[in-house]
Amino acid sequence: MIRFDDVSKRYPGGHEALKLVSFDMGRGEMVFLTGRSGAGKSTLLKLLMLSEPLNQGQILVGGRNIHRLPANKIPYYRRRIGVVFQDHQLLFDRSVYDNVALPLQIDGYDKHEAARRVRAALDKVGLLSKEKLNPMTLSGGEQQRIGIARAVVNRPQILLADEPTGNLDPQLAAEIMALFEQFNQIGVSMLIASHDLSLITRLRHRILTLEHGQLIRDEHHPSRSGASPG
């Protein structure tokens, strides 16, 4: 599903954020990306979202070299990818509902179908009752769940998350991760950057470790796909 071949990224000014990173991630896989701050986790995700150009190597998603996509194809590529941000990036000038509906509006859904999907996504994250509120009035954990609902409302094949639990206490963080596992179980490929080692080792998924821009460890854990859904 996602394949990195000797990918390097140097920022203007000379900082080398990624050095010859290569890995392969299967369809429906759930992978954690860890390392200290500045190890290159966010850069790796940005390269996948096409919000930064790369300097060397190639990234294949579904077999296509995404950094060779013509500019007018980039929006359609991005619609297939859900993104969850650490600071959730919600828009405070509109309701919870309108925040979640944004990707569907962009994709040109008809209003009834969009409403159905928005409610399904909000139901999934347990916030259906708050659809009319402004996200500013909600707690950090709730805001992050809205961010997740927005990321999955378009039923993406791939979900990327950059420190999705960075601002949350351990219990909320565990809840968010459980939510991600549920999406993974319905077939969404997941790449989640997190520096919370104790949390992610407990979850027993594959873990990629970055250090100074290099991939230094790639640990596979037994899949939990046999576990009964919570």
Partner: peptide, 16 residues
């Protein structure tokens, strides 16, 4: 700005 950046990452076209 914030709205435009978010929409861009969600695959909004320039025209949109």
């Amino acid at each position: 700005q914030a709205e435009i950046r978010v929409m861009d990452l969600m695959g909004a076209t320039r025209g949109y």
